[in-house]
Design a protein around this nucleic acid. Structure first.
Length: 512
DNA sequence: TTCCGACAGTGGGGTCGCAAT
DNA sequence: ATTGCGACCCCACTATCGGAA
């Protein structure tokens, strides 16, 4: 199959807004693909590369290469060349990768070049990624979409399922079962703005503390233990104390879901930055483990002694968990009967925050474990802080925000009547706000740059954020975590904006 | 007809490890 | 030694489609 055929199809998919049409287009191509092309075509159509990451980013792609006039590249050619590029390492590798990418781009037509850019940067912008590709695959093979989604969750990859399905048809889905040692896509939580809202939606539920660490899936099969992240990367070698903890549990074969986090000597959680740094350390694990020891804290059991627990209600999965895992290694929790029991949920949240944790997750007691589309039975609630800050600059947006000033640079007042930048945000804006702020910020512009505009510091904006963290990038030494716009405050003058001083005072633990 | 769940898109900051300077 | 870059952690929010109510 020619690469141009995929590039053109992707273009067509991007051109239609109807999801049903996107699905139909993808299904048609899945049906046409040769068996040998399938392992390549499937990830490409879901906007990804079968090789995963290749060390190719904007710096390597930032070259102007004249496109070829006629399409000649086969799908397999592109794949072979990318595999080659990914294999280049060592001194001079970046220049060599750049040269090879240049050669590939020169062999590609205009449409193919654009598609390649999308695949390599992970921004295909065709309005169809894994989930829509799953629908297309189901449609192409006649398999029920829900069964395909479940198989993908169990296989941890669309590609594996697609190959089996296209080769052997719907019966192939039977082969995808929960297996100890093979990671499954984790169940995720949605957000709720308050405990009351969450309890209202869920009814009887468990309220569990939400730890600010790294998600971990622990598999044990006898003496073999493997640890996986949320994206199913194997991090076994980095966390020997977790392996040891898993081996001490009195069970031979199980899969547990939880969080890994670092605590200080008093049992309070250390900052997310410290936990993340530890989990990210791969080279000198022994030293890292000594300086920042981490602990597993579990909240779910997916498999026990060869039994698949995924479809059991949460209550029963938790019973299994509690039988295996001693209390200190489990997430703290309380049970709530329903809205009339709200006070208990509120009390638990307050207590959890006092302990230094991030918030709570409320989980429906009757819900199965599912990464598929079965509604939000896990709801997280975290406290939100707000500030009035001043817009210092704004950057031009990309994709559907092209032509709009999007990413705002946010400043707080300083003691010397100036402003210190605390970070950026592009979140929380409606289309109307984008249009309005583009016009307003242009009026305030003092300098036009390629990336955007700097403005007179006059526009006050109300910002929500999850907390403060240390920063080496910004002048105050701190930055906002997950900043998002709530609304513009034209009724406020910049002199009424919040100061760095009051911000630091509100989060004493960060600079202590 | 209206409502709402699921998805894709739009990017944010930090840290680590490797290569380049 | 320091800097730049890519990968991978954490993540919020809006617009839109299409099935459910």
């Amino acid at each position: 199959m020619l690469f141009a055929q995929l590039a053109n199809l992707s273009h067509q998919v991007a051109a239609t807004s109807a999801r049903s049409r996107k699905t139909a287009l993808l299904a048609e191509l899945f049906r046409e693909a040769d068996a040998e092309d399938v392992p390549i075509v499937i990830p490409y159509l879901a906007g990804r590369l079968p090789q995963g990451r290749l060390g190719i980013g904007w710096k390597v792609l930032d070259q102007d290469v004249a496109p070829a006039a006629e399409p000649t590249l086969a799908v397999r050619d592109v794949d072979a060349r990318l595999t080659e590029i990914g294999g280049v390492t060592g001194t001079g590798s970046q220049a060599e990768r750049r040269r090879l990418v240049g050669e590939l781009l020169a062999a590609a037509t205009d449409v193919e070049q654009r598609y390649l850019f999308g695949l390599l940067t992970g921004e295909v912008r065709q309005g169809a990624l894994d989930a829509v590709a799953v629908e297309g695959l189901a449609s192409a093979t006649g398999a029920p979409p829900a069964d395909v989604r479940r198989a993908v969750m169990l296989a941890g990859s669309l590609q594996t399922v697609a190959q089996a399905l296209l080769a052997d048809g719907p019966p192939a889905l039977e082969r995808f079962r929960l297996t100890v040692g093979r990671p499954v896509l984790p169940m995720l939580a949605h957000s709720a703005s308050s405990v009351a809202e969450a309890v209202e939606k869920l009814g009887a539920c468990a309220v569990e503390e939400k730890l600010d660490g790294i998600r971990v899936q622990v598999h044990r099969d006898g003496p073999d233990v493997r640890l996986y992240t949320r994206t199913l990367d194997d991090i076994t070698d980095r966390l020997p104390e977790l392996t040891a903890a898993a081996l001490e549990l009195r069970g031979e074969r199980f899969i547990l879901d939880g969080e890994v986090i670092a605590f200080d000597e008093t049992g309070r959680p250390r900052s997310f930055q410290e936990t993340a740094g530890r989990v990210g350390s791969r080279l000198d694990v022994a030293t890292a483990a000594e300086q920042v020891p981490v602990s597993p804290v579990f909240f779910d059991a997916l498999s026990m002694d060869g039994r698949d627990l995924l479809d059991l209600p949460f209550t029963e999965r938790h019973t299994e968990l509690a039988r295996l895992v001693p209390e200190p290694m489990r997430v703290r929790r309380t049970l709530v009967h329903g809205p009339d029991d709200l006070a208990e949920a509120e009390r638990f949240l307050a207590d959890t925050l006092v302990r230094g944790h991030e918030g709570v997750v409320l989980k429906a007691l009757d819900a199965a474990y599912s990464a598929g589309r079965r509604g939000a039975s896990w709801l997280k609630v975290k406290p939100v802080h707000t500030l009035d800050l001043v817009v210092l600059a704004a950057e031009w947006g990309h994709g559907r925000r092209t032509g709009k000033l999007s990413n705002l640079h946010l400043g707080a007042r300083t003691a010397d009547e100036g402003f210190a930048m605390l970070g950026k945000t592009f979140k929380g804006m409606t289309d109307a706000m984008l249009t309005w702020q583009t016009e307003r910020l242009r009026e305030l512009a003092v300098e036009e740059k390629r990336w955007g505009v700097t403005v007179r510091p006059e526009l006050v904006v109300e910002i929500a954020y999850d907390g403060l963290q240390r920063s080496t990038r910004y002048p105050a030494g701190v930055t906002l975590r997950f900043a998002r716009v709530i609304r513009y405050r034209e009724d406020k003058s910049p002199a009424e904006a919040d100061t760095v001083e009051t911000l630091l005072a509100a989060h004493p633990e960060v600079t202590r």
